[in-house]
């Protein structure tokens, strides 16, 4: 599992994941067992951080959470699927619904335990900017979407980015015009 995916999991748990990151996670969730484990470990760390230390922690272990996730996923798979006009909707709706239900249930479990052990400590914040994670020592990998493109298409995409950069950053290239976009 790449550092990028780990970073996305962290962002998801902190409610800071972008739409692209959520899609990327969903795409990799089925194929990468480590990703699920990381998700549950991060979830567990977050729960531990948010629980006062003077009470016994009753957060389910990663294995238990994996089993619970699997049972929920199996149950969703067994559900009768409604017919949707667009086949592309069906492709992503199921894992989204599965993850949403599983996450909701896990969050509910977390909330139950949180309620048992008292309010959240003020001194711990998990909502810090994730800049430090971006500047890690791992080799830099291209975005997964870019990696799927062949060399020629990557070049084309970079050309668009560079053209946009030049348009944006050079005053002589741009000035406001008075015709509205509709004309």
């Amino acid at each position: 599992m790449s550092g990028k995916l780990k970073e996305s999991v962290s962002a998801l748990i902190d409610d800071e994941a972008s739409e692209i990151e959520v899609h990327r996670l969903l795409r990799n969730l089925d194929s990468e067992q480590d990703l699920k484990k990381t998700f549950f470990i991060y979830q567990q760390i977050r729960s531990v951080l948010r629980n006062p230390s003077d009470k016994v922690q009753r957060i389910p272990g990663v294995d238990q959470q994996m089993k619970l996730f699997q049972r929920i996923s199996d149950a969703i798979d067994d559900e009768e699927t409604f017919t949707i006009d667009s086949p592309t909707h069906r492709n992503w709706l199921k894992p989204v619904a599965g993850l949403a239900v599983a996450a909701t249930l896990l969050m509910t479990v977390g909330i139950v335990f949180n309620n048992e052990t008292g309010p959240l400590p003020d001194s711990i914040s998990t909502n810090t900017p994730t800049i430090a994670q971006n500047v890690d020592t791992q080799p830099v990998e291209p975005e997964p979407e870019l990696r799927e493109l062949d060399e020629e298409k990557q070049k084309l995409l970079r050309e668009y980015l560079n053209k946009h950069d030049r348009m944006t950053r050079l005053k002589g290239n741009t000035h406001l015009v008075n015709y509205p976009p509709g004309q």
């Binding site: 668009y160 053209k163 946009h164 348009m167 944006t168 290239n173 741009t174 000035h175 406001l176 015009v177 015709y179 509205p180 976009p181």
Partner: peptide
Amino acid sequence: KPMYSRQSNLLHFTDGLATLSVF
């Protein structure tokens, strides 16, 4: 708002800070 661009197949917009290019 639209901004002047040299190419007819390129549209460029800004809100003063953020920018958008459409190719």
